[in-house]
């Protein structure tokens, strides 16, 4: 089952709001952090902006859409990395660390790679083979 172009359009709109939310959240959190800076907090919005908004916009224009499951894994990967980045920012600003933060990175990367693999398989199945 692959997504429609309309689904991609909806995903793009969702990412616009998600990116703005993360950007505003990061700025507000930094505003009340008494000058303690964390790049993980300030730049967390780049994750949904680049991996979500930008990539989905490219997909929208190329019209080579992913499968539903591939898209699901990929989007959950982006959410995981974004939450992990925000959490790392919170801990940085407080001045502490936690060994479990690595799990966000590992889980996020694995999900994104899985999503990309399914996307490539989907391209082979639904586009290249059809052309041949």
């Amino acid at each position: 089952m692959i997504l429609s172009i309309l689904d991609i359009k909806r995903t793009i709109i969702k990412y616009i709001f998600f990116t703005i939310f993360i950007l505003v959240f990061g700025q507000i959190y930094e505003h009340f952090s008494f000058g303690v800076i964390s790049n993980y907090m300030i730049y967390a919005f780049l994750i949904p902006l680049i991996l979500g908004l930008l990539i989905n916009t490219i997909i929208y224009f190329t019209k080579i859409v992913p499968s539903k499951m591939g898209s699901c894994l990929y989007n959950n990967g982006i959410i995981t990395l974004t939450v992990g980045s925000i959490l790392k920012g919170v801990l940085d600003i407080y001045g502490t660390t936690n060994m479990y933060l690595k799990i966000y990175l590992y889980a996020g990367v694995v999900l994104i790679i899985a999503g990309i693999i399914l996307y490539i398989i989907n391209i082979k199945k639904n586009y290249i083979f059809k052309i041949i």
Binding site: C72, N76, I79, V83, L87, L91, Y94, N98, Y100
Partner: peptide
């Protein structure tokens, strides 16, 4: 899958905050 994964992510995040 989405509901299950996001639930696990939320619970794990709460755990990390409590642990910290």
């Amino acid at each position: 899958f989405n509901i299950c994964y996001l639930s696990i992510l939320s619970i794990f995040t709460i755990f990390v905050l409590l642990n910290t």
